[in-house]
Simulated scan of single mutants.
Amino acid sequence: MRDFLFFLVKLALVVFVVRSFVVAPFTIPSESMQPRLLIGDYLLAAKWPYGYSHYSLPFDAPLLPRRVLAAQPERGDVVIFRAPPANQRDYIKRVIGLPGDSVQLRGGRVILNGQRLPRERIADLVVPASPNSPCFSSLYREGAGEGAACRYPRYRETLPGGRSYETLDIGVTGADDTPVFNVPAGHMFVMGDNRDRSEDSRVAPEAGGIGLVPQDNLIGKALIVVYSTDGSASPARPWTWWPAVRAERIGGLF
């Protein structure tokens, strides 16, 4: 019994160190990062790229009074952070603006430092309809029954320096036109790739959003998708487990 308890203590210590300083698992609960991430994706986030704070530790253990080994993300990074102003929930978004940048949206297009980001229309995103991928509305639903799918307009947006990623622009919303945001030191402007289904830096905290995010709230950088399910499996019916797995999404690097 003593040896077994000693083993459990060592195992708990290893798990604590790995989850705090190496990698940690996260799940995707919303559509805000479509098309890159879908509800039901499970990913690992690297903890070392941006340094460590008490948000990096399990249960926000108050062992680090400030962020150590701090490093700034790059534009285009997909980051996990503690969402202001409450700092109680983990969010995942893409970094668009860094300290010294100005960011604005006009007609759904991003204007970074006075220059509109290049954007090209590409093939629509088509996702099989499932419990984890319900269509935004019937306007974007094709077919019925098991063959039903959701189809969304998809674009490729490119940052200065050539880094590009895919976005969705489903329709006109109030967040398509914003004032100019000037990113102060120690902060970042983040957005979801699904521009019409994301609560991000476009909305100020006093209006129910998160506003500009302090870099001290960073937890990690998205690394790899390790599992994905469409949500159709039932724990009581093992024969439904494998059909629910979206195997083609596993292994996707960032």
Score class of each variant (00 low, 15 high):
Ile122Thr: 15
Asp3Tyr: 12
Arg67Ala: 05
Asp90Val: 14
Val183Gln: 09
Ser228Trp: 09
Leu212Ser: 10
Arg154Val: 01
Pro85Cys: 00
Ala144Met: 03
Ala70Gln: 12
Arg249Cys: 01
Gln34Trp: 02
Pro214Phe: 05
Asn182Pro: 12
Trp48Ile: 14
Pro160His: 06
Arg195Glu: 01
Asp176Gly: 10
Arg202His: 09
Arg121Ala: 00
Leu112Cys: 04
Asp216Ile: 01
Thr167Tyr: 08
Arg67His: 03
Glu74Tyr: 08
Arg249Asp: 05
Pro243Phe: 02
Leu11Gly: 13
Gly209Asn: 04
Tyr91Ala: 14
Tyr152Ile: 06
Ala129Arg: 14
Pro205Cys: 00
Arg151Leu: 09
Cys150Thr: 08
Asp124Ser: 14
Ile28Glu: 06
Lys10Ile: 15
Leu112Thr: 02
Ser133Asn: 15
Arg121Lys: 14
Leu168Trp: 09
Leu57Ala: 03
Met188Asn: 10
Glu157Tyr: 04
Cys135Asp: 06
Val225Lys: 13
Asn217Asp: 12
Asp193Met: 02
Pro205Met: 00
Ala144Trp: 10
Ala46Cys: 02
Pro153His: 12
Gly100Glu: 03
Ala207Pro: 02
Arg66Glu: 07
Leu43His: 07
Arg121Leu: 04
Thr167Arg: 06
Trp242Glu: 10
Phe181Thr: 14
Leu69Ala: 15
Val23Ala: 11
Ala236Ser: 15
Leu212Gly: 00
Thr229Gly: 11
Arg19Ile: 11
Pro29Ala: 12
Leu38Asp: 10
Val183Leu: 11
Thr158Leu: 05
Val190Tyr: 02
Asp77Leu: 02
Gly209Tyr: 04
Ala129Asp: 10
Ser198Glu: 02
Gly251Ile: 03
Ala71Arg: 15
Tyr152Ser: 05
Met191Glu: 13
Arg195Lys: 12
Met188Tyr: 03
Arg163Tyr: 03
Ala123Val: 10
Arg67Lys: 15
Ala244Leu: 04
Glu248Pro: 02
Val110His: 02
Ala185Val: 14
